[in-house]
Amino acid sequence: MNQRTSPRLLVAAALSALACLQPVHARAGDAEACFTASEEGQRLRDEGRLREARARFIACGGAGCPDLVQSDCAGWLSDVTARVPTLILSARDEQGHDVADVRVTIDGAPLAARLDGKAVEVDPGERVLRFERAGSAPVELRLVVREGEKLRRVSARLARPGAPGAGAGAPGAGAIRPREDRAASSPAIGLFLPIALGGVAAGSGVAYAALGLSARADADRLRATCAPRCAEADVDAVRAKILGANIAFGVGVAALAGAVAALVLRRAEPEAPAAAATAAVHVLPVRGGAAAAVGGRF
C-alpha cells in the first residue's frame, strides 16, 4: 500500500532545516567581523590612532565573538585605553575671565563645540589646536601630545583682532610664535665676549709695561754695581720679570685679536646667538719668552 507524502509535511521539514542552518551562517558572519575588527584595531593602534583602535577592540571583545578573540581584544582594549592622552581645554578673554563659548578644532577636525572644563581625548603626536570665538582673533597652539599623558591643561587667551597679544596662547601653552633671536633682544649679551677679551688685552698691556720697566731698572742696577759677578739669584729675578713681560705681551696680543674677530663675526652673522660664541687663549712659555695663540668658535 503506497502512501503519498503530504505537501504540508515537506514544507514543515524544509523550514526546520532552514531554521537549523541560519544560526550557523549568522555565527560565521559574526566571527569574520570579529577577526576583521581585531586586525583593524591592531593596525590603527600601531599608527597611533588610538581612539579608533579602541572602538575596534570594543567591537571584537563583545560576547558574540569567539572566546580567543574576546580575550585578545580585551587585553588590547585595556592597553589602548591607558595610552589615550587627555587634555583639559580653557580660554580667557582680554580681562582674564574664563569664557566657554569657544569652538576648538584639532588638526582641522572638530574637537569641542564648547568649553565645559571636562577632559577630552586626543591621539598622540604633534597636534595643532585652534580656538575660535565670535569677536575674537583665533588662536592656534602647537602641541606634542604624548602617549599616556592625562589631564594636560591647555589654555588660550582670546582678544579682539588687532589688540596687543591677540592670537597668542597662554604662557607655556605652545603658542605658534616667530623665532626670537636672543642676541637681537639683548645686545649686551652679544658684546660680552669682545668686551671681556678687550679687558684682558688692556690688563696684559699694563702688566707687560710694569714688568718690562721693572726688569730694565733691575738690569741697569746690576750692570752698575756688580756686573759681571752679580749673584745668580739677582740675575734670575731679572730673567723672571722679562719672561713675565713676554707672556703678558703674548696674552694681550691674543686677547686683542680675539676681540676684533668676535666683533667682525658678530656683525657678519647678527642672528647667531651670542651664548654660542666661545674663545680660548693659549700661552706657552718658551726659552727666552712666550708663544700665544687664540682659538674660538663664534
Rank of each mutant, 00 (worst) to 15 (best):
A261P: 01
P194Q: 00
R153N: 07
R45V: 06
A53Q: 04
A254P: 00
F249D: 10
A217Q: 12
L143D: 05
R133K: 10
T5N: 04
S186F: 15
V281F: 04
A183T: 15
F131Q: 05
A290L: 01
A291V: 10
L68F: 11
A163N: 05
G169L: 05
R297P: 00
L21K: 11
L50V: 10
A201K: 02
V139W: 06
G288K: 04
R223W: 13
V281A: 00
I88T: 12
C65E: 00
A255N: 05
A134S: 14
A17N: 00
E47W: 11
R229A: 11
L111G: 11
P138Q: 00
F35C: 00
S38H: 03
G125V: 12
V281W: 00
L265Q: 11
R157M: 07
D220K: 10
P171T: 09
G48P: 08
A119T: 10
D72R: 05
V84K: 01
V235D: 02
Q42E: 11
A277W: 01
C34G: 08
P194I: 03
A224S: 13
P110V: 14
A248C: 08
R103A: 15
A209H: 06
K150L: 12
A28P: 00
I247C: 08
A196L: 12
G258E: 01
S186I: 13
E52L: 12
A227T: 13
Q22W: 15
A237Y: 10
F249S: 06
G296L: 00
H25P: 09
D46T: 11
A272K: 15
A227N: 08
A272M: 10
A183G: 06
D72E: 12
R92W: 06
V251E: 09
L141N: 08
A82I: 07
P273V: 15
F249N: 08
D79P: 12
L213T: 11
G252L: 07
